[in-house]
Write a protein that binds this DNA or RNA. Structure first.
Lengths: 151, 151
DNA sequence: TTTCTATCGGACATTTTTGTCCATCTTCTT
DNA sequence: AAGAAGATGGACAAAAATGTCCGATAGAAA
């Protein structure tokens, strides 16, 4: 239901959010989130163009969230890489009834709208305020264990 | 969010439902629902293998719903051609926490589950009991206008 | 039995998505 | 100044989704 690219983008920002005021190299994020390095690079470029993250080039550079995690909705991230498309007119191209959808497409769009709203009102910060037994990006053995913080 | 194939499958069964106790040829369904004839043929084969429709071969044959429209949920149709995949374990492959999802994947799966349930409890018949201004498969000019019924 | 009209299913073409590789540019550190 | 670390972007490869074509097969009607 969600594309692979969306998954990757969400994992990436979730990883960034753990320590969001510093840049993190693509390679680090890729290790942390277990996804293909070079594909992530493309995803990060898309997030950058959409203004979700900032790129810092050169040594000790990387990507960094553009806003605080409590200001960033999951929908923004999703739409940055693979926009959720609402059904705003009859896909059959039937003329004459502008925004009126038939019952079938009405239901489909209702469902899409629900999904959209779910993620519109979920912020990245909420993901981190985990109370359950499993931490944000799934490491269950290790303790808090963000990135490897320089010591 | 929904694949093209799902759209097609839903349109097709919606078309069949209008007159569900007779077989309808792929070509007729394709015209009615404005989709590529030969691709629909593949979709119908999938629906047939899944038991959603029956195929009647030979002259005056076609496809026909296997059950009454009020017995057929949209989820059944969707799953027949492009199954909705729940997230039942950590996509990162992190070991050690079986069905426990991290907050990110928990939210994603919650959303998928919501969608699943929406369509699980919507039957094809409900789509036809339209009270709004637009009829099931969008023809707004023509009156009831099912298929071209033999006269 | 012949013919007509359907589905069936394999092969193939196109497009989109996903994934990989590498040369280049930028910035920091030494 | 030189080297190291990192983003950038183009080119390409592989896989999946979508779309097209056509011969084979089955059943009903003539």
């Amino acid at each position: 239901m969600f594309s692979h690219t969306v998954e990757y983008a969400l994992r990436a920002v979730a990883a960034l959010a753990e320590d969001w005021e510093r840049p993190h190299a693509v390679q680090k994020i890729a290790e942390r989130t277990k996804m293909p390095n070079d594909y992530l690079a493309k995803v990060m470029q898309a997030l950058c163009r959409a203004g979700v993250v900032n790129a810092i080039r050169g040594r000790h550079g990387g990507y960094q969230l553009a806003q605080a995690p409590n200001q960033l909705s999951l929908l923004t991230v999703i739409n940055a890489v693979d926009p959720i498309k609402r059904i705003d007119r009859c896909p059959l191209g039937l003329p004459g009834h502008g925004p009126n959808l038939c019952p079938l497409h009405r239901r489909l769009d209702d469902s899409i709208r629900e999904t959209e709203n779910t993620f519109r009102y979920t912020t990245l910060a909420e993901l981190l305020e985990s109370t359950g037994p499993v931490r944000p990006l799934c490491p269950v053995d290790e303790p808090p264990a963000l990135f490897h913080v320089a010591t």
